[in-house]
Amino acid sequence: MSEILVECRALRRSFGSVQALRGVDLKLEPGKIVGLLGPNGSGKTTLIKILNGLLQPSSGEVRIDGRAPGVDTKELVSYLPDREYFPDWMRVSDALDFFQDFYADFDRARAEEMCRALELEQGRSIKTLSKGMREKLQLLLVMSRQARLYLLDEPIAGVDPAARDYILHTILTNYNPQGTVLISTHLISDVEQVLDEAVFLREGEVVLHEAVDSIRERTGQSVDSLFREMFRTGGREGGERNDR
């Protein structure tokens, strides 16, 4: 049995009176690409923030590689938020220097290569780049790390199809095969073929965690189709087998 990389037990998080996570139980093994799937407001971003140490749980336990989120685990986790985080003064080369200085697992040569492929010059000021290019820069920096856990929060939302293909391709060709990639999204049909496993999150709880192949064999539907069914009708079953 392979070791568990990420473990959440009865994880809860509230913001005032709003319960974002209501007791999440989850176990993730290494070497998998996992989709964290759910509608907006289901708690995906909250869960990811707890995993990367940006938020403290209200109660429950989180373990990454057996340890609680902290300085140690941040060395292992490569995080892509759903927003831009570079300061205005930075140039492309500053950003690469930054990652190289703070992350031992950063592969600078690989990052520079990806910049070249995008025709992104090192001397460009980041704030003069287009939004799409800034997002690609963030992605390539995150994927140039040989991390144990990649947390990608909505990497393809609001992105044109060509860029989306680029993003998925970049993820597939650069991730550490011994690591785990957790992709959160509500656009399931676009990422389904990239996933090993799917986790359905509804209103702060995990309602499904299964291998994609298994879902397709068991229900005769794609994960996207099952998702629509489960989240439209509010059915809590794992999807009925369609009579053909």
């Binding site: 070497g31 998998k32 690409i33 060709t173 073929q193 996933l195 994609v212 192949d213």
Partner: peptide, 17 residues
């Protein structure tokens, strides 16, 4: 596996299978 998975845009484990 990686070449084909990359070409097909699928998870390497899936292509492996």
């Amino acid at each position: 596996v990686r070449e084909l998975a990359s070409e097909a845009g699928v998870n390497p484990n899936t292509m492996q299978r």
